[in-house]
Design a protein around this nucleic acid. Structure first.
Lengths: 201, 201
DNA sequence: ACTCAATTTTGACACTGTAAAGTTAATCTT
DNA sequence: AAGATTAACTTTACAGTGTCAAAATTGAGT
């Protein structure tokens, strides 16, 4: 009664379909992703995926979960790469966030976009996304004033880096090719540096 | 040689198609938007739109432009509604940004999303978007330190409110139905209040 | 009235997702 | 071990989609 090992025909088609979907996504963006193409790449007929996913939205959800795993890896790597001070860890997670977006824009769109979920299903009970959020929570914790709701700082950091990443990816800052250091990224980091401080004048 | 008045058959089909598209978008989200349905609503055959737009991306671009007009209106209204201090105007534009997103999420997705443009075409030479950006610029101006690049403050404000709006719309804060005052919106506004100040401690 | 170009329609094609029914292969039961 | 059962997959079919090419229609200019 093995759960997903070399079962009936294909071996594990589910995995193959998800991987094909990710490849398609990274090669040609969201437009290039289709159930039938995934099936073709996995070497099965076009209706086979129906037995593993709830249609296209189901496949996209599975891809998004996979995306959150990679996303988490980017963030922890960036955190660990820098100085191990509270402030540098906070900056680090932002760098990881942006770098993930730059390297996997298709995944990012799928994770937070139209289908990702959001409307279609409650995000709460999603292991992968919850894990990513816990990383954010850990990094933000040192900046949460005693007795205050941690969600406040988390919302500030998340909104800022999420917004920047999406605008940057959309070319809204008009500098998609320039080195990151020259972009408004440092400006956003300067605002990050003000989190958990008190304003004066 | 009038440019767009009661010309040949339909009157001005272009306008009707854009309006149909906006309606579709607000009724059923992005999924519900299709060239053929727009054509049907405008009472023409399915291939008629081809002569007014460069395919579906072209129609979406036109809808996005219309969206930026409405967007600008939301922001200026919110700015003018509040106290006329620099700080309150800054808060006002954020309120307008969020309220537009809440009322017209489909438009927002089209404006900044996959097709909106971003990749497909350079955003710079877009009258409607440029106008929206100028509103942001005007509100940010009082907070730009002398001799510094205004883009810095603009990127900070834009990233923050854009990210918050998208995350909020995606249900990421888990409070889509609660009153805005209870949401992390106030937290984000607290960070906005720190723009143009100096950190201490 | 004739011409002509812009506008719209018709028809077709290659895709898409999805559902239903049929086929094959592995597991379970006895 | 043999038959029954179920899961995985294929085949077929249908309703949509965007897009193209060729025809038909319409409005305006001469």
């Amino acid at each position: 009664m093995s759960t997903a090992k070399t079962r009936h025909h294909h071996g594990d088609l589910k995995r193959a379909l998800i991987q094909a979907g990710i490849d398609l996504l990274e090669e040609g963006g969201l437009e290039a992703l289709s159930l039938r193409k995934c099936a073709a790449r996995a070497g099965v007929s076009h209706a086979a995926p129906a037995h593993h996913f709830a249609g296209l939205p189901g496949l996209i959800t599975a891809i998004a979960e996979e995306g959150f795993d990679i996303f988490s890896k980017y963030m922890t790597d960036a955190i660990n790469a820098g100085e191990q001070t509270d402030r540098e860890r906070l900056r680090g997670i932002c760098r990881g966030y942006l770098q993930f977006g730059l390297s996997h824009s298709g995944l990012l769109k799928v994770m937070f976009g139209e289908h990702g979920l959001g409307v279609h299903a409650p995000r709460s009970d999603n292991r992968e996304e919850a894990e990513a959020y816990l990383i954010l929570r850990g990094v933000c914790a040192p900046f949460v004033p005693e007795g205050e709701d941690p969600h406040i700082v988390e919302a500030q950091v998340w909104s800022l880096i999420h917004g920047f990443t999406l605008l940057y990816l959309g070319g809204e800052f008009g500098c998609t090719d320039a080195p990151i250091e020259d972009s408004p990224f440092e400006a956003v980091m300067a605002l990050i540096d003000r989190i958990g401080t008190q304003a004066t004048g």
